[in-house]
């Protein structure tokens, strides 16, 4: 498979997973949260400093449709992660022509 085809397929798959499939994810507490609830130390948790953020808890503030809200948050997250991480890795990489 061509490099370009491979990367684009992977990116589209990520967009689909975060933008569409994420709506069907389990809403039960994750492992750490459940253990903290069962044992009792959940009470020491403080509210997240970004809890009022526009995208807090994987939803777009003001968008009432749950499917749309989580999907849009997912798409924004995928694009942000893609741009920032690819940018960083391209900066860090061995440049062509440089030694080793």
């Amino acid at each position: 498979m061509k490099q370009k085809t491979f990367l684009i397929s992977g990116f589209i798959a990520s967009l689909f997973l975060a933008g569409v499939v994420s709506f069907y994810a389990s809403s039960h507490p994750d492992g750490l949260e459940k253990v903290a609830e069962d044992i009792g130390f959940i009470e020491t948790a403080k509210e997240n400093t970004n809890a009022d953020g526009v995208l807090a808890d994987y939803g777009v503030k003001g968008v009432d449709n749950e499917r749309l809200s989580v999907g849009a948050a997912g798409v924004i997250g995928v694009i942000a992660t893609g741009v920032i991480s690819t940018g960083l890795f391209m900066l860090v990489r061995r440049k062509p022509g440089s030694e080793k």
């Binding site: 490099q3 990367l7 992977g10 990116f11 798959a13 990520s14 967009l15 997973l17 975060a18 499939v21 994420s22 994810a25 389990s26 809403s27 039960h28 994750d30 994987y58 989580v70 997912g74 997250g77 995928v78 992660t81 893609g82 991480s85 690819t86 940018g87 960083l88 890795f89 391209m90 860090v92 990489r93």
Partner: peptide, 21 residues
């Protein structure tokens, strides 16, 4: 491989949204 590393981070972000029971 640098673009693959970027794609890997992106894919991990996406799949981390998919909580399974």
């Amino acid at each position: 491989t640098a673009p693959l590393a970027g794609l890997t981070a992106t894919f991990i972000f996406a799949v981390q949204m998919l909580n399974f029971p």
